[in-house]
Write a protein that binds this DNA or RNA. Structure first.
Lengths: 156, 156
DNA sequence: CTATTATAGACAACTTGATTGTCGTTTGCG
DNA sequence: CGCAAACGACAATCAAGTTGTCTATAATAG
């Protein structure tokens, strides 16, 4: 097998895509249409305390403008609430709405189901050693998900 | 650990990114600037017999227009040669040039090195069982790499 | 206390990679 | 022969980013 290195990369990508595709499809079929990973991640960051567009941008390593666009979508769908901060008139305070949390929970449940089906496919011990191995390889460097078409793009 | 499913997805993505980032950086430092995964994959497909834009598009599951654009870049850099097919005046026959093969070889070598460094990090047996597990999970469904910012995008 | 500097968010223009739609040309088949 | 199908080109559009500029507000230095 001559290009096992490249193949490994493809496998990693493939496994990721399989998970994400299925979760997105699952959310879709539950009525949460058009929820993409980025939205999930953004909501998660907001729930975790990124309460302004600029802050969200920083956390996700994206320009505040890009963050603002994502927020606009989330607000439009009722997943996030944006209201002027009484303490600082420049800010618009962000909050995940109950509906937003619902989506997040649904997403997590789907991910969890998927993980369980992986366990059935390859065995629990196999899966957990896979996770451990990946964790070692990835280290604790934050994973950037954004960047338009980053698969095809220059990496800063 | 409540969201281990989602976390697994992130780990997979992270590992993929780590590999790709390093390979792209490596190619860059060897003078092959701005070679992105997509280019590698396209060249590979061309070398494997996708000898026209339309055909390349089909193989990579991308519109022929998108394929044509990628080809234009590859031609411009001298990685791929495009000449009218004597047998069919509609076609432009594609060929990977020696320089193109050079890049591909360099990329593979980098991937291989990376894989070896993974072996050192987590052990050879651990890595090969990781690969086996991933192979089971991914199955033989072709992995689409394209789609602009697909992480954030609607999945057909 | 005021003047400067920094931060938040809005708006606009541009970039990249892909898509769809249309078109002229060439081929191949009934 | 004639017409449908396939190839590649061109153009318009989309999606998700980016940078750059602007106004309003806050914080800080003198």
């Amino acid at each position: 097998m001559s290009r096992s290195g490249a193949e490994l990369a493809l496998l990693l990508l493939g496994a990721y895509r399989r998970m994400v595709d299925e979760v997105v499809a699952g959310l879709e079929s539950q009525g949460y249409s058009d929820v993409r990973p980025v939205h999930e991640f953004a909501m998660r960051a907001i729930a975790a305390g990124a309460d302004s567009a600029s802050e969200l941008g920083r956390r996700v390593s994206v320009s505040k403008q890009a963050a603002a666009k994502t927020i606009a979508i989330l607000v439009e769908r009722g997943y996030v609430d944006r209201e002027t901060d009484p303490a600082d008139a420049r800010r618009k305070r962000l909050d995940v709405t109950p509906l937003g949390f619902e989506v997040m929970r649904a997403g997590e449940a789907l991910f969890e189901e998927l993980r369980e089906s992986f366990e059935r496919e390859i065995g629990a011990s196999e899966l957990s050693s896979l996770e451990a191995a990946l964790k070692t390889l990835v280290g604790n460097s934050a994973v950037r998900i954004e960047a338009p078409g980053w698969v095809a793009q220059e990496l800063d």
